[in-house]
Write a protein that binds this DNA or RNA. Structure first.
Lengths: 191, 191, 191, 191
DNA sequence: GATGAATGAGTTTTCATTCAT
DNA sequence: AATGAATGAAAACTCATTCAT
């Protein structure tokens, strides 16, 4: 039970960080801010997490795992009526853009740049895992066995690119148009 | 001549920032670091730039303008033997990936998130300008008048995505494969 | 109890500032000095006060409120044997001159000049409040209902003037002589 | 001629300081600001003045001497029709209040507090000189030989007090009312 | 005479981390 | 479990002063 509470509190902390970064345009997150958002003291924060880096690490894990879960849930629900359009739409949608996760995503990438290799490796591990997950859907939607790997990679690049444009608030292209373009890649191979 | 020197020193400062971000895995760049790299005192730094933000602003401008220039130079030199492959290759190459600019790019995007609207607007302005420049090349290479705008956008998203993967040191897909996939988009419309 | 300690520390800080300004001929007070006088670190200072301005603000409030309290205490104790001489003497005495508050007073006035309107308004608010308090004593001592307002104002000007002469260490006139002159104003109206 | 120019430039500098303090609500004057106002470089400033303190010193001298001159000019022009009212009015007027000199006055007083004894002594010397000058007028206006010294002192205190109220923008009492009160002091002795 | 450039010691402020209770 | 208090190292920024040209 104690352990349960510990996990609950840790989750509370992670959620606070996410919202601080994603929702409010927070400058560069501090432990004081996090503690305040959780209604706990800075001291308590250190009861649950030994360092700030540990928190950021868990935020990354949570962030990407949620992407995975949401995507897998959706694909399960729609596996029998999977059009390319709907598939791409949901990928881009779930990817980063609309769930207020763009800022978080870029923030985390930037944390990784700061020479924190543990963080970076974890990020890559999870990102690559997503690639595998993504591939399954692509095979189904595109009915294309051969190039599913590359298409999955391309999609991931585009999602990252969209995240950047999102945080810059520079709406440069609609999803529809991306979908149209992507379809061309897939369609040719379908026949 | 004095003015010339002032510009020289400012350039020196900007170059230092770029290299600090790009080459070494700098934690989060400080004015002390910049000054040391330039072999000047912090005081001198403030002689040339009133605030850190001003420095970052100029780094952005310089960063994107160099992309523009390099790209335009190349396109001029190769406008008569422009294959889609070579075009895409150079875009992705010049884009971000190989010039050690990926870290810089992400770092600057992240600066923009921190609520610095002036920075963000400048970034977008320059980014959108690049879109226009890019489009010219695409029209020539793809011989496709209609979708050049969208293709240009897509390419820019991919470049941003590549930048992220680059800073994460997570080589997920080779340029060749991206090129192959992109060609499909273009080819269909050629006929 | 925790809150009590917080107030205690804040008081400690304010007292340090006061003594730094009043006693030693401090150049222009720094947070480092304040911290050292309190035997705390600069970081701790910021635990109790968010900015230097906030400290100065509280010093003003404390400074003037102490004037009020001391004066009111005295008037209560002496309200039954209130001669004009004793009244004037205590006003000028408590006013600024002898409690080492002159430097503090001028320092604070100067802070207000630096465009800090919040500070200035607070100073005026407290100063005008003192005018009201002063008036009560004047009515009793001078037995003069009509001009008590003006006399109170005049006294306050003189106190400010004395503060300046005090910090300049330029003893130009004894209190006795001021009292003699002021009495003339009052006496005429008594009859 | 060279010497003449040097004096001119020095005057230019002093005027700049005065206006920076008096007119604009300048924070805490810097040599950069002074140089800019004079349209010269900081280097040039150091050609005319060896230190900042030297500048402040000369500003004090100029400030008080101008008070003297203006007052003496006026008294000469009006020595034959000198009423107490007009005399007091012009003293308070010339004193500090209306010539935008209040801020300068308090600023200079504050500079003296900072432990600069040379400055302080000069200020006192000039201030005491003014007392003597003032006394002459008082004797004429009040026709009161005996108390002219004390009245002069009292007036100077009031002027300093008015300066403080002026910089605090806290108009507490009109000159008229001060004059009325002061007249009472004088009148009694006249008869 | 005049100046642009450089400096270093100083200022205010921030923040991850520790620890006694 | 929880926290208020404290810290110190580092951050951005200021400014009087110097000096070669």
């Amino acid at each position: 039970m104690a352990k349960k509470m510990k996990i609950d509190m840790r989750n509370e902390i992670l959620k606070s960080v996410e919202s601080l970064i994603s929702v409010s345009g927070v400058n560069s997150i501090s432990l004081k801010d996090i503690a305040k958002t959780c209604n706990i003291s800075k001291g308590t924060l250190y009861y649950y997490y030994k360092t700030k880096d540990e928190i950021i690490f868990d935020v990354i894990v949570k962030h990407v795992q949620e992407l995975h879960t949401e995507y897998l849930d959706w694909i399960e629900r729609h596996q029998h009526d999977l059009t390319i359009e709907r598939f791409l739409s949901v990928i881009l949608y779930k990817g980063v853009k609309l769930f207020n996760r763009a800022k978080l995503h870029i923030f985390l990438v930037n944390e990784c740049i700061k020479g924190n290799d543990v963080l970076r490796n974890k990020f890559n591990e999870l990102w690559n895992k997503w690639h595998k997950i993504l591939q399954v859907g692509i095979k189904k939607a595109f009915k294309n066995e051969q190039e599913s790997e590359d298409i999955a990679y391309l999609l991931m690049l585009i999602i990252d690119g969209l995240a950047i444009q999102e945080v810059l608030q520079n709406q440069i292209i609609s999803e529809e148009r991306i979908i149209t373009l992507m379809k061309k890649i897939g369609e040719r191979d379908v026949k």
